[in-house]
């Protein structure tokens, strides 16, 4: 059965980790001169058919702020698809700087937990459409989900579902859910979680954590995810975005073909 949701196509998003103007997680595929150049890599994924590019861990610390902004500008000039930047954005000014540098959306994570009002401010200032709240979740033995911050290193007392509803109510346009217990397992996204959240929330939900094969995208879109994000499976050269989309089309999931 087609999972097409009244016309909108599920999105395949590629995530790059960028620090000091370089792509930092192992990228390994043929045909690129410089695997570490964020512009060249982002364009390569656009060419493969990615629906959106996300830069995370931009490490926008004070020392290399100018560097990070310049990288964002260079990428934004070249890309003709949506471009989201996140990681290390802590204030309204940070967000404003990165949007002005060319990002279409920002992903807020720890900063949103530490100062939830920031979500309201950014949503009112720039519009809900440019606010993605990223939530790192870890499944507990009793089946509940805990929210982590600081790159997954610090546990919070937040209840995952209550936090997601709060994020939506404060004006987020989308949520990006990373299932930490799935990250790096290669066993696919946490689709029980995605199914529940996708039907619970009235904003779009992006699945992250656990993808290692094209079929994992089929599973999560069938569960109701509006978009799904992966990094390693693409960077290691195991699969291209094209291959993921072919698999989706073969399973009657209508995705964008370019």
């Amino acid at each position: 059965m087609s999972n097409i949701k009244n016309g909108l196509k599920p999105r395949v998003i590629v995530c790059l980790d960028v620090a000091n103007g370089r792509v930092v997680k192992g990228v390994n595929f043929k045909g690129l001169k410089d695997m570490g150049d964020p512009v060249e890599l982002a364009l390569e994924y656009q060419r493969q058919g990615a629906d959106e590019i996300v830069f995370l861990d931009i490490k926008a610390t004070l020392e290399n702020r100018a560097n990070a902004l310049e990288t964002v500008t260079q990428v934004a000039k070249s890309l003709s698809i949506p471009f989201t930047v996140g990681g290390g954005l802590n204030s309204y000014q940070d967000v404003s700087d990165f949007l002005n540098a060319g990002a279409d959306k920002v992903a807020l994570n720890s900063a949103a937990v530490k100062n939830p009002e920031l979500i309201n401010q950014i949503s009112q200032g720039f519009g809900a459409q440019c606010v993605v709240v990223a939530v790192d979740l870890d499944k507990q033995n009793n089946g509940s989900y805990k929210v982590f911050i600081n790159g997954g290193h610090k546990e919070t007392n937040l209840d995952a579902f209550a936090w997601l509803h709060e994020v939506q109510q404060r004006g987020a346009g989308e949520v990006l859910l990373t299932a930490m217990h799935k990250d790096g397992t290669g066993s696919g996204f946490d689709n029980d979680l995605m199914k529940r959240i996708a039907s619970d929330l009235s904003i779009q939900v992006i699945a992250s954590g656990g993808a290692a094969a094209p079929y994992h995208f089929v599973e999560t879109f069938e569960a109701g995810s509006d978009a799904a994000l992966a990094a390693g499976m693409f960077h290691r050269g195991e699969y291209s975005v094209q291959q993921v989309k072919q698999e989706l089309l073969q399973n009657n999931i209508e995705v964008r073909v370019c």
Binding site: N6, G7, L8, R11, D51, Q129, S202, I203, Q204, R256
Partner: peptide
């Protein structure tokens, strides 16, 4: 629309 805002390809 099912989700608001509408964000995506159509």
């Amino acid at each position: 629309s099912p989700k608001q805002p509408m964000v995506g390809w159509c």
